[in-house]
């Protein structure tokens, strides 16, 4: 029973976060665009808007196209969500809570997130729709390509940290020792990790398919890409998983580069509860930046997207990897 509650905590967190993030996205976009966004539902700044939307989605008819491959079509959103949920199990939310403190945490996380690609392709192929198919093709190419720079930048962190366990990586980043005042976060420990972080951030934007890399679902070209045929709560789960994925990758970034749950003020405001708050703040900051980008930039074209990945990000991440290793050997 305790185990069940223990395992349900991240789920509650994801659902709660997703409701909040969708609301936040609307407010952020609205204020960027000189409007107010939802203001009515629930009273204060329309805070209950996403809850109302969720209730509406649940009531909606679940349409499955006649010629769709029923089993794959129905299961694709759940596979997607299961994959991002499973990945949360190795994220150290605070010094007191981690789903499973396994020794190959990073490796497990990267492996499980590959399932995301698979489920998107599943949904795209099973829809039996040409727009979905184009979206699925783009997803396959994009996610597989961008996994390379993501993994390379993660690897460069591992060279510095020397552990695959995310809890251990977080623990070693506590304290303020660099130059006497900077926190011991990995990004401050090695100058080349700043480059690694930039590559990592670009890649996670692409992996969670957000603008300017939102080609799999690019609305104005492919209608809705792989989700074209989805409706009701199945579509809602895709949405949920997309936001969960954003958070997951942002939190991973926070652990790997910005100290995870470690407080920026050394032992001041630390402790498990503060740790959780710091951790979520760091993650949400990245989520916010992604939203900001989405409402500012246009979208890349599919070949340009690939060009950025293969001609810039991958070579730079490899060179950077070598430089980080050299730095570590020298100092």
């Amino acid at each position: 029973m305790a185990l069940l509650i223990f395992a349900t905590l991240p789920l509650l967190l994801i659902v709660g976060y997703a409701l909040f993030a969708i609301w936040l996205e609307r407010k952020v976009s609205a204020h960027i665009q000189d409007r107010l966004g939802p203001m009515r539902v629930g009273g204060w700044h329309g805070w209950a808007q996403t809850i109302a939307d969720m209730l509406k989605l649940i009531q909606k008819e679940d349409i499955i196209p006649t010629n769709a491959s029923r089993f794959l079509f129905k299961s694709a959103p759940f596979v997607l969500f299961a994959a991002s949920y499973a990945a949360f199990s190795v994220i150290p939310f605070s010094s007191a809570y981690i789903g499973s403190s396994i020794n190959i945490g990073v490796f497990y996380l990267l492996a499980v997130t590959s399932l995301l690609t698979l489920s998107v392709i599943m949904g795209a192929w099973a829809s039996n729709n040409k727009w979905s198919l184009l979206g699925g093709m783009r997803t396959a190419a994009q996610m597989v390509s961008y996994e390379v720079p993501t993994i390379m930048s993660v690897l460069s962190v591992l060279v510095v940290a020397g552990s695959l366990n995310l809890m251990t990586i977080s623990e070693m980043q506590t304290g303020n020792d660099i130059l006497g005042f900077l926190p011991n976060w990995l990004i401050f420990q090695n100058p080349f990790l700043i480059v690694a972080f930039i590559i990592f951030f670009i890649s996670i934007v692409a992996e969670s398919h957000r603008v300017p890399f939102d080609l799999p679902e690019s609305e104005s070209e492919l209608v809705a890409g792989f989700q074209t045929e989805y409706s009701g709560m199945r579509w809602g789960i895709f949405m949920l998983a997309e936001y969960a994925d954003m958070l997951l990758l942002s939190l991973l970034g926070a652990v790997l580069f910005f100290g995870g749950w470690a407080s920026p003020f050394g032992s001041y405001l630390s402790g498990p509860v503060w740790g959780f708050i710091w951790f979520m703040l760091k993650g949400l900051l990245f989520v916010f930046v992604m939203m900001w980008m989405r409402w500012t930039l246009p979208r890349y074209r599919v070949d340009q997207l690939m060009e950025i990945c293969w001609t810039i990000l991958i070579p730079v991440s490899f060179i950077n990897f070598v430089l980080i290793a050299l730095w570590e050997m020298t100092f």
Binding site: D34, V211, S218, W295, L297, R299
Partner: peptide, 16 residues
């Protein structure tokens, strides 16, 4: 045109 290229915000600026 901006909207077609995925830029949503200029569209609303234009509409204001």
């Amino acid at each position: 045109f901006g909207l077609d290229l995925g830029a949503f915000t200029p569209f609303l600026y234009c509409f204001i």
